[in-house]
Amino acid sequence: MDIGLNALAGLVVGIMVGATGVGGGAVMTPLLVLLMGVAPNTAVGTDLIFASVTKAFGVGAHHAKGRVDWQVVRRLAAGSLPAAIATLIWLQSMESAGDRHGLIVAALGAVLLFTAVAMASKPFLAKLGKQRRLADPTRFKKYQRPLTVFAGIALGFLVTLTSIGAGALGAVMLLFLYPLRLTPAKLVATDLAHAIPLALVAGAGHLLIGNVDFVLLGQLLLGSLPGVWIGSHLGGKLPDNVLRLCIALVLGGVGMRLVST
Rank of each mutant, 00 (worst) to 15 (best):
I104F: 01
V105L: 14
V105E: 13
A106F: 09
A107M: 12
A107C: 05
A107R: 06
A107T: 03
G109N: 04
G109S: 06
V111P: 04
V111R: 03
V111L: 13
L113E: 13
F114E: 01
T115R: 04
A120I: 00
S121L: 08
K122W: 12
F124D: 14
L125V: 10
A126E: 15
L128D: 10
L128G: 01
G129I: 14
G129C: 11
K130A: 14
K130D: 13
Q131E: 15
Q131V: 07
R132L: 15
R132C: 12
R132V: 06
R133M: 14
R133S: 15
L134D: 15
L134A: 09
D136Y: 10
D136V: 09
P137C: 03
P137D: 12
F140R: 09
K141E: 15
K142I: 05
Y143W: 14
Q144W: 05
R145Y: 07
P146R: 14
L147M: 11
T148G: 06
A151T: 11
A151H: 04
G152C: 10
I153M: 11
I153Y: 12
I153T: 13
A154D: 03
L155H: 04
G156D: 08
L158V: 05
L158P: 00
V159F: 08
L161G: 06
T162G: 01
S163K: 09
I164V: 15
A166F: 05
A168E: 04
L169W: 08
G170N: 06
A171K: 04
V172I: 10
L174W: 06
F176S: 05
F176P: 01
F176M: 10
P179H: 07
P179C: 05
P179N: 10
P179A: 09
R181N: 13
R181Y: 03
P184M: 02
P184G: 05
P184L: 02
A185D: 07
L187K: 02
L187F: 04
V188M: 09
A189Q: 09
D191V: 01
D191L: 00
L192P: 00
L192A: 03
L192D: 08
H194A: 03
A195Q: 04
I196D: 01
L198I: 02
A199Q: 03
L200A: 14
V201F: 00
A202L: 03
G203K: 04
A204D: 02
H206R: 02
H206M: 03
L207C: 05
L208P: 00
L208C: 00
N211Q: 03
N211F: 10
D213L: 07
V215M: 10
L216A: 02
L221I: 13
L221V: 10
G223Y: 09
S224L: 01
G227K: 11
G227S: 05
W229N: 04
I230A: 14
I230K: 05
G235W: 11
G236H: 13
K237A: 14
L238E: 02
P239N: 12
V242A: 13
V242S: 07
V242Q: 05
L243N: 10
R244W: 10
R244V: 12
L245E: 06
L245M: 12
L245C: 03
